[in-house]
């Protein structure tokens, strides 16, 4: 009974300077003197401290929690210690995206060197095409390609593919860039690229 009264005193309505009584559950209650003078290192507090430590150990003793800690969080901490001194933006992008980022950058670099990157709509085959031709990469979709590089690309499955003015193919493991010289050539490439499914 005594315990209940003490709880009510802590959470009961109080008047504030705005003049409104607080609702019971959410009020900004002032501590009772007994609470205010209680030492943070009371006997009960120390016992609870040890209980907390034991509970934390038990918590991380469970297999899933343990593996989450050791396989994810601790490696993230190790990453942090390594990454503190490596703050260069491009390096961080390469670390995060890997080949998904490096491949579009390589492709865009070709057109940037020519000074025509802003005028290009490049017809790009999908991942399956590259894999079949011995290049083991994942090709990101055109919007991600554009985000990474500023170069506009298009897949053969898009109605806009007929507007492409450059084509990317692979020959003996090498990337080949061809400008579109005829509609027939473009349509033939679109048809051949369409055989490969889209993989986002």
């Amino acid at each position: 009974m005594k315990k209940k009264q003490s709880r009510a005193a802590k959470t009961g309505p109080v008047k504030t300077s705005t003049g409104k009584a607080d609702p019971p559950q959410t009020s900004s209650a002032k501590p009772t003197p007994a609470v205010a003078t209680r030492s943070a290192f009371s006997f009960k507090g120390v016992i609870l401290f040890f209980i907390s430590i034991i509970v934390v150990f038990i918590f991380f003793g469970f297999e899933r929690n343990k593996s989450m800690l050791t396989d994810r969080i601790v490696p993230y901490w190790d990453d942090f210690q390594e990454q503190q001194d490596k703050t260069e933006l491009e390096e961080r992008k390469v670390n995060r995206y890997g080949y998904d980022y490096m491949f579009p950058k390589t492709v865009a670099n070709f057109f940037e060197k020519k000074g025509i990157a802003g005028k290009v709509l490049l017809l790009v085959p999908t991942t399956d095409y590259f894999k079949e031709h011995g290049v083991d990469i994942h090709v990101v979709e055109p919007s991600v390609f554009y985000y990474f590089t500023g170069l506009k690309t298009v897949w053969a499955h898009s109605p806009k593919a007929v507007n492409a003015n450059w084509i990317l193919t692979v020959d003996k493991g090498q990337l080949i860039f061809d400008s579109v010289t005829s509609k027939a050539m473009l349509m033939q490439k679109i048809d051949s690229f369409k055989k490969y499914k889209i993989d986002l």
Partner: peptide, 28 residues
């Protein structure tokens, strides 16, 4: 004021949160 017995849990939560915040900051 943080009570002594809050420390073990809050320290773990803070640690787990910190590595998350670092990744949010560091990576694109």
């Amino acid at each position: 004021k943080i009570k002594l017995y809050e420390v073990p849990f809050l320290a773990m939560v803070l640690f787990i949160f910190f590595v998350s915040a670092w990744r949010a900051f560091y990576f694109p």
